[in-house]
Computed example of a mutant assay.
Amino acid sequence: MFGLRKFNAPVLKPAGPFIAGGLTVFYLVAKLQGAMIDSEEYRNDPRNPALAAGKKAH
């Protein structure tokens, strides 16, 4: 009754492009956040998390 069926529904194959797109967006957003933290405008801002982590202010 339960367990593997004769005709399994494909899950990963149709979801593959969405998984790849999600990983790409996650990577690009993380890279953009890192670039914004190191930008000249927010480099010495006290709300900058890089200052709390111990990076030196420029």
Rank of each mutant, 00 (worst) to 15 (best):
Leu4Ala: 06
Leu32Ala: 05
Gly54Thr: 05
Lys31Gln: 11
Lys6Val: 12
Gly34Arg: 14
Met1Lys: 15
Ala57Glu: 12
Gln33His: 02
Ala30Glu: 01
Leu51Asn: 10
Lys31Val: 08
Lys31Asp: 07
Arg5Trp: 13
Lys56Tyr: 05
Ile37His: 10
Leu28Trp: 04
Met36Leu: 15
Ala15Met: 15
Ala53Gly: 10
Phe2His: 04
Ala53Trp: 14
His58Val: 14
Lys56Glu: 10
Met1Arg: 15
Asn48Lys: 00
Pro49Val: 02
Lys55His: 12
Ala30Tyr: 02
Lys55Ser: 06
Leu32Arg: 00
Gly54Leu: 04
Tyr42His: 14
Arg43Ala: 06
Met36His: 14
Tyr42Trp: 13
Pro46Cys: 01
Leu12Pro: 08
Leu32Thr: 02
Pro46Met: 01
His58Glu: 14
Ala30Phe: 03
Ala20Pro: 06
Val29Gly: 00
Phe7Glu: 11
Phe26Val: 09
Thr24Phe: 11
Arg47Gly: 01
Leu32Glu: 01
Asn8Cys: 15
Gly3Asn: 07
Lys55Glu: 11
His58Gly: 15
Asn8Glu: 15
Pro10Tyr: 09
Asp38Leu: 06
Asp38Met: 07
Asp45Arg: 06
Val25Ala: 06
Asn44Ser: 09
Ala52Gly: 03
Ala9Thr: 15
Gln33Trp: 04
Ser39Ile: 01
Asp38Cys: 04
Pro10Leu: 12
Gly16Trp: 09
Leu51Thr: 03
Met1Leu: 14
Ile19Leu: 15
Pro14Trp: 01
Lys6Met: 12
Val25Leu: 09
Arg5Phe: 13
Val11Arg: 09
Glu41Arg: 08
Gly16Arg: 09
Gly21Phe: 10
Arg43Pro: 00
Ala30Val: 01
Val29Pro: 00
Gly3Lys: 07
Lys13Thr: 13
Ala53Asn: 13
Pro14Ile: 01
Phe18Met: 14
Arg47Trp: 00
Phe7Leu: 10
Thr24Tyr: 07
Pro17Trp: 06
Gly21His: 11
Pro14Glu: 01
Pro17Tyr: 06
Asn44Ile: 01
Ala57Ser: 13
Gly21Asn: 12
Met36Val: 15
Asp38Ser: 09
Phe18Thr: 08
Glu41Tyr: 02
Gly34Met: 07
Lys13Arg: 12
